[in-house]
Design a protein around this nucleic acid. Structure first.
Lengths: 201, 201
DNA sequence: TCAAGCTGTGAATGGTGGTTCACTATTTCG
DNA sequence: CGAAATAGTGAACCACCATTCACAGCTTGA
């Protein structure tokens, strides 16, 4: 054989792969899953349809990686928020605030990540997403229960409920989600934890 | 013209229509939206594919009617619960309990109604569903705020958050939803309202 | 009984969008 | 340069399903 993949070619391929991912992220965040057809992604990345399949085994594989990338970014943001100083309640509220504020800034993306219909393999990734959020919150609640600042409760369940509550309020057309919705959600969260410093009369 | 639709034929057609709806309900509740293809529905009802289109303009129209039927049943159940005697908090908890218990008994159906990917016209109907639940809860919260048993809050937002919380816990694979999950959800709900009788230390 | 007009049929149609693959272009190194 | 091997192409392919439609078989009232 004569041909070998040199670093130069490898670099070009890496950037091509990245370009495909970027195009998919862009499409997902603006037009949602529906607008994320393989043809459109290839077009956005400036490659042919078939080239997408040189880097990803299937569309699902591609979208899963897109999800993972976006989710990692979001989870890191709330994890940072969870580590801020303050009471247990305040830290959970910080997580919710971060989550909600980011969703408010990029509603189309939030919808795509949280609720938009997708097919099974991607749905599995979404579950990982929600679970990650739940775990960040549950960890804080667990600490609060142990140190007595929160009443006894099943931390994972409360955490799941909070994730559901925030998701519903942010993406559901059930509420006219404005800036003040984030504040109200904080109060809701604080009360739901049963924290001493809750807005309880 | 010689042919006219007689009551006998009308009755046959009515029962045929009902059979199609029943088959669709059955499929939705067992195999979900995915298993609810027009061919499968027709098969289940014992009619030809084309016959479905004699009664429903499109698949979406059919599924919307199925949704509406199922949703009405569920909403009536929680409305009954909301009218039980007791404090505001207790009545909201009664709604949540009813909602959750019913979801627990028919998880596949709950998933189909609350979360399973569907196409746009059906999604619109789902929003009506969640909104109906929210409104039942919001009405109670509004009363509680007015009579001073609950702290001031945006009733629709709290209600939406509660709907989201319950939905997440019941359908999400995030929690091992057992019987005790319903109890824990009640406590969560009570706390989140900020009720005086909440499980607040 | 019979013509007219309806209900019921299910194979054929058509649109959509992921996937393939025969082909071209590019790269490597003797 | 040129043979070998790979990267890139995009039109064709295919599976899936909602939808249609020409037709068969009933139903009706005269």
């Amino acid at each position: 054989m004569v041909y070998r993949r040199t670093p130069r070619i490898q670099a070009r391929m890496d950037s091509q792969r990245a370009a495909i991912l970027d195009a998919a992220v862009e499409l997902l965040a603006t037009r949602g899953y529906a607008g994320c057809s393989v043809a459109a992604v290839a077009d956005g990345a400036g490659v042919a349809t078939g080239s997408v399949y040189r880097y990803f085994g299937s569309k699902a594989e591609l979208v899963v990686e897109v999800f993972r990338q976006l989710v990692t970014r979001e989870v890191e943001a709330v994890e940072r928020a969870a580590q801020q100083p303050g009471s247990t309640g305040e830290r959970v509220v910080a997580v919710v605030d971060t989550f909600a504020a980011r969703a408010l800034k990029a509603p189309r993306l939030a919808y795509a990540l949280l609720a938009e219909p997708v097919d099974a393999p991607v749905e599995a990734e979404r579950i990982v997403f929600r679970r990650a959020f739940r775990d960040v919150i549950a960890a804080r609640i667990g600490e609060g229960v142990r140190d007595g600042t929160l009443p006894p409760q099943q931390a994972p369940l409360t955490a799941a409920a909070i994730v559901g509550a925030v998701a519903e309020v942010m993406i559901g057309p059930l509420t006219s989600g404005g800036e003040d919705a984030v504040d109200e959600l904080s109060t809701f969260t604080l009360r739901s934890l049963g924290a001493f410093d809750a807005g309880n009369p």
